[in-house]
């Protein structure tokens, strides 16, 4: 058996794969957070709850109406995005003129409410979501066995991250978004409906979280608590990357996922905390974050 640094090749590759999958979720979630933060200046604490909602909507669509995975992958983000738009329009938008901390506190309350409600109806234990038949099984790569679904998660998240990046950097809508991030009042005086843009941006962020949730459903158990633990890690990812750049959020997400996977191989005790340790080191050496411009 091939050994690398005294570790079997297959084990190393296996953990690297798990790291890459976690990284896929970190990247999708921190991308959504960065998009929302860029324009709304709100740290969306409810992002984890929206991720959980995505997984639950997929599960309920399947068990109640028999809607399959592929349709849920489109439908769940739309439903959660619409919910996000309603929240933004009716409540969150009232807080923009205040200290940004109120946005964080409000979305924190929202997250508690959503998660508590789902615990009330569905209990705290997880429920399995079947892997879609088309993606069942795996392939032997020679040095390791790759479950097809996991490969799909990596590909799908990468594709969505690139698509969102292109949307923001290369389209007209994206130029509105970037300009409004710099000076919303001037963009509105040009005749762009900035309040609507804010609503759409929040909806986009929420639906990205929901998309990640549907992707996660067949891998992890669908449970009301699945969002809270991951969101705190994603906050650390966002601090490491710096909120300044969309690309930074994506790249940092993947990198830290891989770093976490490697830690599992070489020093498993620290695998829960490695991202937080990296965050502390980055803050000491480069407070603005790896890709951040502000200090």
């Amino acid at each position: 058996m091939t050994m690398i640094f005294g570790v079997p090749m297959a084990a190393l590759m296996g953990q690297l794969l798990i790291g890459l999958i976690n990284g896929s979720f970190y990247a999708l979630l921190s991308l959504g957070l960065a998009v929302i933060f860029g324009l709304l200046r709100v740290i969306n604490f409810a992002h984890g709850a929206q991720y959980m909602l995505g997984a639950f909507v997929a599960l309920l669509l399947l068990t109640w109406t028999g809607v399959n995975y592929w349709i849920a992958l489109i439908l769940a983000p739309l439903i959660v995005g619409t919910f996000g738009a309603l929240v933004e329009r009716t409540m969150l938008s009232r807080l923009y003129k205040l200290d940004h901390l109120y946005g964080l506190l409000f979305t924190f309350g929202l997250a508690l409410t959503i998660e508590g409600t789902f615990r009330y109806f569905f209990g705290s234990s997880g429920q399995p979501y079947p892997t879609p038949p088309a993606l069942a099984g795996g392939v032997n790569l020679g040095f390791m066995f790759l479950p097809i679904y996991r490969g799909w998660v990596i590909v799908a998240s990468l594709a969505v991250c690139i698509a969102v990046w292109l949307l923001i950097e290369k389209t007209k809508l994206g130029s509105y978004l970037r300009a409004a991030t710099e000076n919303p009042v001037l963009v509105q005086s040009f005749g762009v409906n900035v309040p609507l843009l804010l609503t759409l941006t929040y909806a986009l962020g929420a639906s990205l979280a929901a998309f990640a949730g549907v992707l996660a459903a067949p891998i992890y158990q669908v449970s009301p608590l699945m969002g809270t633990n991951i969101i705190i890690v994603v906050f650390a990812v966002v601090v490491v990357g710096g909120m300044g750049s969309i690309l930074g959020a994506i790249v940092t997400g993947y990198l830290l996922g891989i770093a976490e996977g490697l830690t599992k191989v070489f020093y498993p005790e620290a695998s829960n905390t490695v991202i937080f340790v990296i965050m502390a080191i980055v803050l000491i050496l480069r407070p603005a974050g790896l890709f951040g411009k502000d200090v």
Binding site: V185, Q188, S189, F190, G191, N193, V194
Partner: peptide, 10 residues
């Protein structure tokens, strides 16, 4: 006076 900002340009 009553027109929202994004309509003044229009």
């Amino acid at each position: 006076m009553t027109m929202p900002l994004h309509k003044t340009a229009r």
